[in-house]
Design a protein around this nucleic acid. Structure first.
Lengths: 148, 148
DNA sequence: ATTAAAGTGGGTAAAAGTGGGTAAAAGTGG
DNA sequence: CCACTTTTACCCACTTTTACCCACTTTAAT
């Protein structure tokens, strides 16, 4: 279970150092093999490869004659990049993915259970502000009764 | 059941000393393992890990295709930091969390039953003033019939 | 086929962050 | 007021991350 936000910097090649606290469990879970794909809105998802493959399988098995499903398949599978943590714990985020998520040098890695999200830091902060506003305004019926 | 307000100071690394009166029950309840996450408005929630995990589970089980739910999942799970009380009873509040809650050196820890809230001292005082005003003005129907 | 440009693997010194400790100051109970 | 406990505010030492560099491979241009 990955959780927590970490502020990180991309180096000049678009690599980030996976925070040390996650490395051991990523080595254990997937020998450092990860998959990066895109998500809405403008962020990236980073999965242990072993966690990604069932999702990809499930997506592939959906009917590809349905235009929306085809779009989703193109989006998620088409953009999925395999990466491997190097000996310094770094992974490379490719240029197309960085462009998709509009990443600058300062990014945030966000633990989300079985996967991570990767955001440009400014966009993350903006999105958090939006979430707080949302929380105070219009609440989904599924959330009524939910308390912290 | 945690209750009471304690004024505390963050050290130069953003650590606070958990008040001694809570330490034993935190050792008993969760072996000193806590989870810190964010809450609206600008404050932090501190849970015994054992109290947090059902909440995270419940939140994870909500549908992640609903944009509002996704936002909340990002907010709460994404920001949830695992911390452990050290031998001096300190816990580290990470920089992103301190930034979120706009914490300065002076903070207040507020017992809230099964969890704590952590506030910047000035913001706490401001919020208390606002609450007193609210109490005299517009009351939620849920509070009618509620007496101290 | 050759050359230049771009991309990437790997390494690491310096900077930043953090774990752990504790003397001094402050708070509390008797 | 004294004795003890707790908290504060720092310090040492170690780990982690940043920001670069060298060298090689791949791609693009000629």
């Amino acid at each position: 279970m990955f959780r927590g936000v970490t502020q990180l910097n991309l180096d000049n090649k678009g690599r980030l150092a996976v925070p040390a606290k996650y490395r051991d469990s990523l080595i254990t879970a997937c020998a450092g093999h990860l998959v990066i794909t895109v998500d809405s809105p403008k962020c990236l998802l980073i999965y242990p490869k072993s966690a990604w493959e069932p999702i990809e399988q499930k997506l592939s098995n959906l009917s590809s004659f349905h235009p929306q499903i085809r779009s989703l398949q193109r989006l998620l599978i088409g953009n999925a990049n395999d990466v491997e943590m190097d000996s310094a714990g770094r992974i490379l985020v490719s240029l197309p993915l960085r462009q998709f998520a509009e990443l600058t040098k300062n990014v945030v890695l966000v633990g989300q259970g079985a996967k991570f999200e990767l955001w440009d830091e400014e966009k993350w902060n903006q999105q958090i502000q939006d979430s707080l506003t949302l929380r105070n305004d219009d609440m989904s019926s599924e959330l009524y009764g939910f308390s912290l």
